[in-house]
Structure formats: C-alpha cells, structure tokens
C-alpha cells in the first residue's frame, strides 16, 4: 500500500483547494491549476520551499535577482497578504485576481491606490510620489532637474488633489483615474486570459477529476 508513491511530495503552505479558489475569484479551476504551475516555477527558483520570497519575486520580474526595485518591493508587499514576508499560493492567486481582465474596476482602483500609498497612511502624499518619481528616473537613467520634477508634481497635484491639502485620498484617486483611465493599464494582465495555454502542463498535475463548467 502506497509503495509506488515514493516520490517526496513538496509541501505548499497556504495552498487552498483549486475549486474553492476558483469559486472566490475570476479564475476557472483549470486556470487556478495553470497558475499553480507558474507558482511552482517561481517559488523554486532560489529555494524550493513552496513559497515565493522577495528575491524570487524580483528574479521573476527582472530575470536578475540582484535588482532591487521600489515598485517590485511594493507589489510584493501587497501580494504578501498575510504579512509573513513570503507569498503563498493563496496570496498569489487572490492578488493576481485583481489583475484579471474581468476583475471589478473598483478593486483595480483600490489596489492601485494602495500601490502608490507607499507608507500605508491612507493617502498618496506628495513626498511619496516624489520618491517614486526619482526612483523611476534612476531606473530609466533619465535625468530631470529638481525644478522640473517639482513642476510635474505641481501639475499632478493640481489635477488630482481636489481639496488641495497636499495629499490624494481614495475619493480623489477614484475621480482622477476615471479621467485618466490609462493609469489603470498596469492593473490588467491580458496574459491571465491565456494562462492555461501558457502552462498546459497543469493537465498532467491536475487533482480535479471532472470540472463542471
């Protein structure tokens, strides 16, 4: 009994039943299983422990683990829903769900707001935006004089900070992105529609016998 099952089974802490995850997200069961193939690949790229570390996350984004990036760090922190310093499969699926083309617009707006609210104050504040702008310029090796950066910030806050209190709240953000919908482009990943085609090997590893549509 069980003598053929000698291959050690990798444990995936926080891995929920694909059927439950599918019922609570925009993904089908097959798509959740395909995401698991992606998750396995990322979570084993440095240490094969069934969890995605910050280093593995950055490696997946930049294909270079030495690259530190304020934005990738921020996305990692938002994906790390349980604040454990690592992303488990449940975090991964539920976070990517916001990026699904069919996800609710309001969820995308709220996630993008939290993304730019670097210090979790409940507001996007001017010093935070300046910090991100400087990081972007550094990353893209673009040079802008400080007065030009201040001009960009002036214009941005004039447009977005409706009550002119120096910070953008969620109501102001909602209005600003509705007038500038291109800002939400980063919140939709068309790849998520084709995830089963990108990771067809999920079929061989599926634990679900029959999928009822």
């Amino acid at each position: 009994m069980g003598c053929f099952n000698s291959k050690p089974t990798r444990q995936y802490p926080g891995k929920e039943d694909p059927v439950i995850l599918a019922s609570q997200t925009a993904f089908t069961v097959s798509e959740v299983e395909a995401l698991f193939e992606l998750f396995k690949s990322i979570s084993s790229s440095v240490v094969d422990d069934g969890l995605i570390s910050k280093e593995e996350f950055q490696l997946a984004i930049f294909k270079n683990k030495k690259k530190e990036n304020i934005f990738a760090n921020r996305i990692f922190d938002l994906f790390d829903v349980k604040r454990k310093g690592v992303i488990d499969f449940d975090d991964f699926v539920r976070s990517l769900n916001v990026f699904h083309p069919n996800a609710a617009l309001e969820d995308k707006i709220e996630f993008s707001f939290r993304l730019y609210d670097l210090h979790n104050t409940g507001f996007i504040e001017r010093p935070e935006v300046k910090q991100m702008l400087i990081a972007l310029l550094f990353e893209s090796e673009m040079k802008l004089a400080d007065d030009v950066i201040e001009t960009i910030l002036d214009k941005t806050f004039l447009d977005a900070d409706l009550n002119q209190d120096g910070k953008i709240d969620i109501v102001e953000w909602r209005k600003f992105v509705s007038e500038n919908p291109s800002l939400l482009k980063i919140m939709t990943l068309p790849y998520l529609r084709d995830i089963t085609t990108s990771f067809p090997s999920f079929v061989f590893n599926s634990n679900v016998d029959e999928i009822v549509a």
Partner: peptide
C-alpha cells in the same frame, strides 16, 4: 515624449517593476 507634460503617475507606471507581465515570460 516630453515628461514634463505627463502627470507623475503616468511616468511612474512605466517602471519595469510594475510590469507584472514579465512574471509570465519564461
């Protein structure tokens, strides 16, 4: 594109660190 005509968030959203599509590239 002259960056000064863009709003700060448009510029920031061009960071590679915010481009999650790279997660799907093998």
């Amino acid at each position: 594109v002259a960056p000064v005509t863009m709003n700060a968030f448009e510029l920031i959203s061009k960071s590679q660190g915010l481009n999650l599509s790279s997660l799907f590239e093998k």
